[in-house]
Amino acid sequence: MEQKFPLPPFTRETALQKVQLAEDAWNSKDPQKVSMVYTKDTVWRNRDQFINGREEVVAFLTGKWQRELDYKLKKELWSFTDNHIAVCFEYEWHDHTGNWYRSYGNELWEFNADGLMQRRLAAINDVPIKSSERKFRDPEEIILAC
């Protein structure tokens, strides 16, 4: 049986752990790895897209990270209950022409008893930014920028 700890019902501590694990997984930019925290029949609404099942998650994330280059994400726990977690997040990325964006959003997560996410609802807005306005720089970029 597949399980992803921590399991519901969530406490503040375990909800924070779940959010950090999600942030780390998405920042890996590995669609296969990320897909494994979702149920096989997971249901998503991501902006205006509806995604069903792990295979569609992998295809969606593969395309996302081919378009959204140098992607860096930060998630924050907003609230939680027994098997639900709400997060707000922001991430930065650039397109193939070098235009930078900061994307802001909120997600609602629902987990099954085994700690796998069975439903994810995401609302996201993109804001164009200048490279100099980036918040999420890699340490080597900060050194080079000085």
Rank of each mutant, 00 (worst) to 15 (best):
L16M: 14
I124G: 02
K33C: 03
T42D: 03
L121I: 06
W26E: 06
K4T: 06
F10E: 09
K33E: 11
K33N: 11
N46Q: 12
L61R: 02
A145R: 15
D138K: 14
L21S: 13
D126M: 00
I124A: 12
F89R: 01
P9W: 07
E56Q: 15
T97S: 12
N112G: 05
T62M: 00
G53P: 10
I85H: 02
W109P: 03
P31D: 01
H84N: 12
M117Y: 01
K4Y: 13
F80D: 03
I129L: 04
K40N: 14
D82F: 05
Y38T: 04
Q32H: 14
R45Q: 11
A86E: 09
E140V: 10
N46K: 02
L7N: 04
N83T: 04
D48C: 06
K29G: 03
R119M: 06
Y38G: 04
S131Y: 08
T42W: 01
E92V: 13
H96Q: 13
F5A: 13
A145H: 15
N46F: 04
L61C: 04
E76R: 14
M1H: 15
A123L: 11
Y71W: 10
A25W: 07
D82R: 04
W26P: 06
A122G: 09
Y71T: 02
Q49D: 10
W109R: 00
E140P: 09
E68L: 05
Q66F: 00
E133R: 05
V43W: 07
K72A: 09
C88R: 11
G63N: 09
N106L: 00
K40E: 15
I129R: 02
E141R: 10
Y101T: 08
R45N: 11
E76P: 07
K130G: 12
N99G: 05
